[in-house]
Design a protein around this nucleic acid. Structure first.
Lengths: 239, 239
DNA sequence: CAATTTGGTTAAGAACTCGTAATCCCTGCG
DNA sequence: CGCAGGGATTACGAGTTCTTAACCAAATTG
């Protein structure tokens, strides 16, 4: 099966990652691949910016090169830990030899990966780090009433019938489904689905929500997407 | 990997085992003994590495300690099974109570051995598991709907009709078929089929996918290869 | 060594997505 | 009732992504 599981592991929840890598080309390649795999990726080109962004924003995981301008990867980990942050950090190292300090990372719940590595290996380790502890595998399918979402296959069915969605629609639905029953505010959607941290002054959300609605709810008696006036939207069975 | 690993796994009589054991001394002792018994043995020192290696490579059998750092033995079995792997797994445990045995087997472990044990007993059980039949053997043919792929014969048929493919096309199809139903990203394809670890800045994948499509899907009403915009491709029956 | 096959590149255009903006539609309140 | 404000819907177009055919070089074959 080899990389089977890797593929399987890579299309999960929309997680926010920070990639700290000074080699522009490598950074671009990795970021692209990770985005294809469904992650939201921010990139920092050096240690200083990286550390700043890591403290400024909350990431689910940080991937840092070992050797970086200004501040190297290991130091970033140390500083983050000193600030009380517990974000898992994955160190990319060009060094072949096993460094004691790096070895120590594993104990701290973090991990390292020696270059060159297969992309699949990276996603596998990311998934391993994102798992909330042993035994709790990340979900691969979500269910809301008769609606089923297959994250690996990027497939949605309702009442057994197949529903085609665009990428944005799928992301939006996944975001809602992960918080099913809870009201999701516009701001939350803007950040979680569009990665916008300011008000775009447009009605992007409304438009996409409308599109998603026609796909999900039009041909069915019970709508699953509900508007909460003045607050946001909910995905749930009851009105 | 594709055809390489195939040759490796099916045509080589030397059995490939993965031993996941955190106790370095025990691991060394067992590995040595198993190698003397004619097995090729890889060792992983903790659950995370073990699970990774188990998915990364095709092993005929996996021997895993029950208690491991990061991810324990039973969880490894569960995860492998969830990934569709059928590798026989032998769990080693210091726990001897009946409950533990049941739990271990229910998790999908194929056998259970309580420490301390005689080395002979270990080899006996390994042989039993390996002998236990074709059901556990590595796949030599893959099926997706009416499409059949004979990995050993390097032959493809759809609806009984023979389809001729070039080497690249076959590799591509095999890669997709091994992950049928799952979206395969371009990056993954680039690495898995072309062994390119950077962006080739061309559309090789698209072109070959198009060629594969004309071979596989042109003369049939239901296409099996589907594009997932912005992500990659899937091989599956449904649209 | 010519002929054929194979695999990578280029490029044109087809198909599709997504954001904007204009318009319509509620809902609640004065 | 009519108005205001939030929300829904629709159409459009720019930009992107995918498909395909044609081309060429390298490898393979007779």
């Amino acid at each position: 099966m080899s990389t089977d599981s890797l593929a399987k592991c890579s299309l999960n929840s929309r997680m926010h990652l920070l990639l700290i890598e000074d080699d522009a080309e490598a950074a671009k390649y990795l970021a692209k691949g990770l985005r294809e795999s469904g992650y939201t990726v921010d990139v920092a080109a050096n240690g200083r910016d990286g550390l700043f962004q890591a403290t400024e924003q909350q990431y689910e995981l940080i991937i840092a090169d070992r050797q970086l301008p200004h501040i190297d990867g290991l130091t970033i980990v140390q500083m983050l830990r000193r600030q009380g942050s517990k974000v898992p950090v994955l160190i990319l190292s060009a060094l072949g030899s096993v460094d004691d300090r790096i070895e120590g990372l594993r104990a701290g719940g973090d991990d390292y990966l020696t270059k060159p590595f297969a992309f699949g290996e990276l996603t596998a380790r990311i998934e391993a780090l994102l798992r909330r502890g042993p035994g709790v595998a990340a979900a691969t399918r979500l269910k809301v009433a008769d609606l089923e979402i297959d994250l690996l296959g990027r497939m949605v069915t309702r009442a057994g019938r197949r529903i085609e969605l665009t990428t944005k629609e799928f992301q939006l639905l996944e975001f809602l489904a992960r918080r099913q029953g809870q009201v999701v505010t516009r701001t939350l959607l803007l950040e979680g689905v569009w990665d916008l941290h300011f008000d775009p002054q447009t009605n992007v959300i409304d438009v996409h929500m409308s599109r998603l609605r026609t796909s999900i709810d039009r041909d069915f008696p019970k709508p699953l997407i509900h508007t909460v006036r003045g607050a946001g939207y909910v995905l749930r069975d009851e009105p």
